[in-house]
């Protein structure tokens, strides 16, 4: 907001998915070092199709589906003045001239930023695409100031990620079955556990996997005792064995939400709710579970701590 004069959105449609992003953070505001606001900035949108975000862009680059990685790699080569294969570039749906123009603009920016969305991180190439963007941005810092930031999904997913990191050391896909945290996305991620049918109960908080996950995962949730904490009826709550109605965070329950850039914001309730907060419910469940005997055998020897 205060600095960026060159902004790229890649694989995302903020006009629909993050409606406040343009007006509050990136494009419109008159920033401290970008006093002209929108006129002082250039915005490039890179996506596989035309979305409502195109209207806000100065330049729209339509990439062929599944070719993001190739485009990023070509840009990295151009940044370092390496030769590139014209025919290969043509396969991406963009011309060499377009990419050269983009590299020129990136290098000439005073402060550049790339926001990359799930159209990049969740399509062909997945984390390879994200890694390539990170490498591109790191390398651009040899020429000018460049940063990047992922555009995350809905709700307080960033908050969950942040808290998981400080309590377990890992952001997601954490397994505590052995009594200590282990991390292996693809093995311990929720969707993998559910599809394999590894877990025999589920407690779901602030999410609606019944609406987003593949059918085998949903079938497993319906099969096992599933408990949902949610202020409203959702696809998941309908298939759950138990649905506990809780107060809505930010409307009738206080709390903290982490923005996509990991800055925490306090939530202040504006209404009273007859329902308990998620925290109260979880604490009560925890009290009951704690009253049960420990799962470690009495003969278990403790590991020294230092």
């Amino acid at each position: 907001m205060n600095r960026a004069d060159f902004i790229i959105y890649w694989g995302g449609n903020p006009a629909d998915c993050h409606p406040r992003h343009f007006t509050k953070y990136t494009l419109t505001p008159k920033g401290k070092h970008v006093p002209m606001g929108r006129k002082g900035r250039t915005m490039v949108l890179v996506d596989v199709r035309e979305t409502p975000s195109v209207r806000a862009a100065d330049i729209f680059l339509q990439v062929r589906p599944g070719k993001d990685f190739e485009v990023i790699t070509t840009l990295r080569a151009l940044v370092k003045n390496q030769p590139v294969d014209q025919a290969r570039v043509a396969e991406t749906g963009l011309t060499l001239a377009q990419l050269q123009d983009l590299v020129g603009r990136m290098k000439n920016a005073r402060f550049g930023v790339i926001f990359f969305g799930m159209g990049l991180s969740m399509t062909r190439g997945k984390h390879m695409n994200s890694a390539a963007v990170l490498a591109l941005v790191a390398e651009l810092n040899a020429f000018t100031k460049f940063v990047c930031m992922p555009m995350r999904g809905h709700g307080n997913v960033t908050g969950a990620d942040v808290v998981m990191r400080w309590t377990t050391g890992f952001p997601f896909g954490v397994n505590l079955c052995r009594g200590y945290p282990r991390f292996n996305p693809g093995e311990f991620s929720t969707v993998d556990l559910l599809v394999r049918g590894d877990n025999d109960a589920a407690l779901i908080l602030g999410a609606d996997p019944g609406a987003t996950m593949p059918q085998p995962a949903i079938d497993h949730l319906a099969r096992i005792p599933t408990i949902v904490l949610d202020p409203k009826v959702t696809r998941t709550s309908r298939l759950a064995r138990v649905h506990i109605t809780t107060a809505a965070m930010g409307i009738s329950a206080p709390g903290t939400v982490y923005r996509m850039d990991e800055i925490p914001l306090p939530l202040r309730p504006i209404l009273q709710s007859p329902y308990p907060t998620d925290e109260v419910v979880i604490r009560r469940i925890h009290e009951q579970v704690k009253a049960k005997p420990a799962w470690l055998p009495a003969s278990f020897k403790k590991v020294p701590c230092a």
Partner: peptide
């Protein structure tokens, strides 16, 4: 890193170079 196994008194966690908070 060193692992901390949870128990009725202790929270699970990880030691090492950037230990978890507990």
């Amino acid at each position: 890193a060193v692992k901390f196994i949870h128990s009725p008194e202790l929270r699970a966690g990880i030691g090492g170079i950037t230990p978890t908070t507990f």
